[in-house]
């Protein structure tokens, strides 16, 4: 494993480094550059440098909406993660119950939301489930004699709708990971626990959870990142071009996107993007150190 050669490895990786440089690195640098200018629709080419004004506007002025978007994002991430972890754990426990013969079939069926193309699932939910006239939810409501309701027109129902959809889409991955982790727990632990008279709670708290925690850490961290930067659900459900539903939910990512592509405030959008990237780097450094310490 110790081939030493100074030039050959760079030759091998040169094409991909060029590609990544052009598509990933350069746009980030360019975004930093734009974030220090007042570039917008009226200043497409004759923009000026305004130093940190965009950052100041995003971080200190409440009416810029960034801080409330940040708060929404934090609530969104925490709620989703707590519910997901609990639900996935219980479902995976159920799937691993001894004697459940159909477990494999259930597992395959439960994987479907993960396998579906995400944008198609979201659009199907928008059209088939949440739509005020034809959606399934409102068909059930009207069958029960209630009046129909637009689930996406106000912030709190829209937030809950987005969350339900996010759970539907994201749970299969975590269930799968938890299921794998549960199968790796040594059965003899449970036997000795049972001999010592440990009940269901004790077995879960003292055996299952501690043994699957290190295996699950990477997938939980990954899911946290995806939940944090979830854009498609909120965008496609509530703020599609030309068909805003009335809800004004914004997470930091949709906020950056709206400012770039709807209100054409490129400077502000870029500043916000850089701030978000900063958060992500800090968070991943923090998480990486946490994992390393746990392993030592």
């Amino acid at each position: 494993m110790n081939k030493k050669n100074k030039i050959l490895p760079w030759e091998y990786s040169f094409p991909s480094i060029m590609l990544i440089g052009l598509i990933v690195v350069f746009p980030i640098i360019y975004t930093i550059y734009i974030s220090f200018t007042n570039m917008n629709l009226y200043h497409w080419t004759d923009y000026e440098f305004i130093a940190f004004d965009n950052y100041r506007r995003a971080l200190t002025k409440l009416d810029s909406g960034f801080m409330s978007a940040l708060l929404t994002t934090i609530i969104w991430t925490v709620l989703n993660m707590v519910i997901q972890i609990l639900a996935a754990y219980l479902i995976a426990l159920g799937l691993n119950a001894k004697g459940l013969k159909l477990a494999r079939l259930y597992k395959t069926l439960l994987m479907f939301p993960w396998a579906m193309p995400a944008y198609i699932s979201i659009l199907l939910w928008r059209v088939g489930i949440f739509n005020p006239q034809y959606g399934l939810l409102n068909k059930i409501r009207s069958a029960l004699g209630f009046s129909s309701m637009d689930y996406l027109s106000e912030n709190i129902p829209a937030f809950i709708s987005c969350m339900v959809l996010n759970l539907w889409m994201a749970l299969p991955f975590l269930i799968m990971m938890m299921d794998g982790a549960l199968q790796s727990v040594d059965n003899s632990y449970y036997e000795s626990a049972r001999l010592d008279g440990g009940g269901w709670w004790a077995q879960n708290l003292y055996i299952t959870i501690p043994s699957i925690k290190p295996i699950l850490a990477p997938s939980i961290i990954m899911t946290t990142f995806t939940t944090f930067k979830q854009f498609d659900i909120i965008y496609l459900l509530t703020m599609q071009k030309g068909s805003l539903t009335g809800a004004t939910l914004q997470t930091v990512i949709t906020y950056a996107h709206q400012n770039a592509f709807v209100s054409n405030n490129y400077g502000l959008s870029s500043a916000v993007s850089i701030v978000i990237f900063g958060f992500i780097i800090l968070f991943s450094l923090f998480v990486n150190r946490g994992i390393r310490e746990e392993h030592v």
Partner: peptide, 15 residues
């Protein structure tokens, strides 16, 4: 790895 954590939507305008 750090670059991979960057949500590409954020640099979409630059691209």
């Amino acid at each position: 790895l750090i670059l991979n954590a960057f949500p590409q939507i954020l640099s979409m305008f630059a691209i």
